[in-house]
Amino acid sequence: HRPPSSGLALMRHHPKEVGVVVGLTAGGTLAFYAYSTYMQKFLVNSAGFGRETATGIMAAALFVFMLLQPVAGWLSDRVGRKPLLIGFGVAGMFCTVPIFTALESVTTSFQAFLLVLGALVIVTGYTAINAVVKAELFPANIRALGVALPYAIANAVFGGTAEYVALSFKKFGFESGFYWYISGMIALSLIVYLSMSETRVGTKRGLHTGAVPLP
């Protein structure tokens, strides 16, 4: 007999998996919002570009980013989900501060495009596969709720507040604090990536025998 799909059943039977979803989402969703949604405002307010130029830079970078998603998904089907998540975690942790710092003094729109694209390439290791990773953590009877509830919480807390936090740091004259905040959150998610099991195992040909155990 399978337990009903409810928040109570989710927390009772899959607390570790819920924690994993929150942990792996926190750094990824913050990085995505910072590198995409907030980045256009950053290019105007901090890098000194006009609104139209900033829009053009972001449109070009996001177009390439879109094309990278199926490539990263294909790669994860061959090497596993975990290596891509770890790659994002390591690169995001070490490159976020240098990328944002360089953007503050960039002199051409092409240089800005390359830096923004570099950040988006890094977060592709998360965006392209995070949904399937979360789905592979739960059995079918509670999968939708297991993915949606903890993801929504982490997305609201970390991704939804990204712009507010960034502008708060800027308001208090410590804009680089936001860069370090992103790096720190990615580092915390990296710990989750390193400790979790490879979710691709046991899901070949679309099969799932249950929640993937954590070490």
Rank of each mutant, 00 (worst) to 15 (best):
A152K: 05
A135H: 05
F138C: 00
I86A: 03
V116R: 06
V121Y: 03
P83S: 12
N130F: 10
R143S: 00
L167G: 11
L62C: 04
L84M: 08
P83E: 09
P70Q: 07
Y126M: 01
M58W: 10
S46F: 08
I122C: 01
I86R: 05
G159Y: 11
P98I: 13
G92C: 05
S105P: 04
R51G: 06
L167E: 15
Q111H: 09
L84V: 07
F158Y: 13
F138V: 00
V106N: 08
A119N: 02
S105F: 10
G80E: 02
G159N: 09
L114K: 07
G89E: 05
I86F: 05
L75R: 02
A140M: 10
A59V: 15
L67H: 04
G48Q: 08
L137E: 01
S46A: 13
G80A: 06
F100I: 12
G56Q: 13
F63V: 14
G56S: 13
M93L: 14
A152L: 12
A47K: 08
A102Q: 11
V157L: 15
Q111C: 00
N141H: 14
F138N: 00
G48A: 08
A140Y: 03
P70T: 10
A60V: 15
A59S: 15
N155P: 01
V90P: 01
G160P: 09
V133L: 04
F138Y: 11
R51D: 09
A135G: 14
A47D: 04
V121M: 11
K134R: 10
L120F: 05
P70G: 07
Y151F: 14
T101G: 06
G160S: 11
S76M: 05
R81A: 07
T124M: 05
A54Q: 11
Y126P: 02
S76C: 08
N155G: 07
L62E: 06
A72I: 02
N130I: 12
V121L: 13
G146C: 03
L85I: 01
A162D: 03
A102R: 13
N130C: 07
V64W: 10
F49V: 10
A61I: 10
A131V: 11
L85R: 01
T124G: 04
I153K: 01
T96V: 13
L117P: 03
E52R: 09
G56P: 10
L114H: 07
R78G: 08
R81G: 07
A148N: 13
V97K: 12
F63A: 15
A135M: 11
G159D: 03
A152T: 14
T96D: 01
L62G: 06
R51K: 14
V132R: 05
R51P: 00
A54T: 12
A102F: 13
A102T: 14
G125K: 06
A91I: 07
V106A: 12
L67F: 13
G92L: 06
